[in-house]
Amino acid sequence: MTQVFILSSLSLMFIGLYGVLTRKNLLKIIIALNIIETGINLLLVSFGYIDHGITPILTSQESILNLNKMVDPVPQALVLTSIVIGLGTTAFALALAIRYKITHNSILINASEEEEGRGI
């Protein structure tokens, strides 16, 4: 089952990269960047998965007895902070997109600067 997780997260990353390369609308480029971010987080957590593993939370004495069937907790700890920082980066990119619309008066990336804008 690890194969399914690794293949799906890699294909998500490459679909997002295709979107960044070929689209012209700035908002759609930012959506594709977020899809790449989701794929990377999935890939990191899937490197710690073990077949038929259990959740790394202690609930009673018997979960201390089978400690070597637990899934690796270290990648989960790293991905937890990565998701929150991805949100901050997305907010910053959206603010830059609004600025771009004000100065160039169009949301496509091949707009020219010659026309006078009428402001938002």
Partner: peptide, 9 residues
């Protein structure tokens, strides 16, 4: 802590 991910973070 009983949650091992919390104790790592």
């Amino acid at each position: 802590a009983a949650n091992i991910v919390t104790s790592v973070v």
